[in-house]
């Protein structure tokens, strides 16, 4: 089934795609059908720079298990950073 479930957020940073590095200002996080991954539903993240057009996008499609592990790892690293840095 199509879940349509999407969270959108503003972000600040850069991402690297086939054409090199781009600034990214927006992200879409959604659990829905993937384009390339083999699972029927995956946790998908698009890092976007809308003013540069639809192709200014770095995308990942992760299994639910991988996505949860990634989220946990991100939190662990940020929480472990020296005080005042993150």
């Amino acid at each position: 089934m199509c879940t349509y479930l999407t969270e959108k957020l503003e972000i600040s940073g850069s991402a690297k795609g086939p054409s090199g590095w781009i600034r990214v200002s927006d992200a879409s996080v959604y659990f829905d059908h993937p384009v390339h991954a083999s699972g029927e539903h995956t946790l998908n993240i698009d890092f976007l720079n809308p003013p540069m057009g639809p192709s200014a996008r770095v995308a990942v499609e992760l299994s639910a298990e991988s996505a949860r592990a990634l989220a946990k790892a991100i939190a662990v690293v940020l929480d472990s950073a020296p005080p005042g840095l993150a």
């Binding site: 999407t6 959108k8 879409s28 384009v35 698009d46 976007l48 809308p50 057009g53 639809p54």
Partner: peptide, 22 residues
Amino acid sequence: REAPGASPDDAMAAARAKGAIP
């Protein structure tokens, strides 16, 4: 309409980012 000329996967992502889906 959300992404004329874009590749199909980028068009889907653009439509989603613009809140056009569904």
